[in-house]
Amino acid sequence: MELLYFGDNGWGDELFIATLMTVAVSITAMFIGFIFALIFTPLKLSKFKLFNFIGNFYTTVIRGVPELLVIYLFFFGGSGAIMYVAQIFGYYDYIEINAFITGAFSIGVISGAYSTEVFRGAIQSIDKGQFEASKVLGLNKYIYFFKVIMPQMLRLALPNISNVWQITLKDTSLISVTGLVEIMRQSYIAAGSTREPLFFYSFAAVLYLFLTYISMKFLNRLEKNYSRGF
């Protein structure tokens, strides 16, 4: 157990910070995913074939390709793409992107594809009468979306969004390949320097179990809260 002491003699504090890092990356990635979902869900539901195609292309490609490959794409291609854009604006120095941003962005793109599917399904399963009723009542677009569709959609989407959260949380272990020090990377470092891989990887598994357990409890409560009266 002295391996887990806080301070210089143990890995307790390092692993604690790494756990916070995992949570921070997951939340950021989830948020970025929601932004992507906000862009692509309307495209998927749109009447125009071209928009549909763009939306479907995004969700099909990202959900059909391994997460690791997407991460490698952004890890190796990210700074190149940014530099390419910067050169158009006349900036020629080397730009290095922070590992946190690369990681959160690549996981965000992945979780966005899943969120898009969830939101699309939720909107499609809202009763058609609701759309028609708000049209007949002459509600403006803002009220129509935020006061009529959104609350119903959230209730239907929440159980699946909590699945997406679990997937995102577990996917963040993959960005350890980019060098960001989260649970997996920290365990790798600790296992390497103490030669106790079994202990540290098992401890990492316990940390992940703890995180998934806590978030499941929290999300279940949220679900109950949202589905009051149903």
Partner: peptide
């Protein structure tokens, strides 16, 4: 409840 990567690492390393 745990990532696949952890499972592989536990078994391999």
């Amino acid at each position: 409840g745990t990532p696949l990567l952890v499972q592989i690492f536990i078994i391999y390393f």
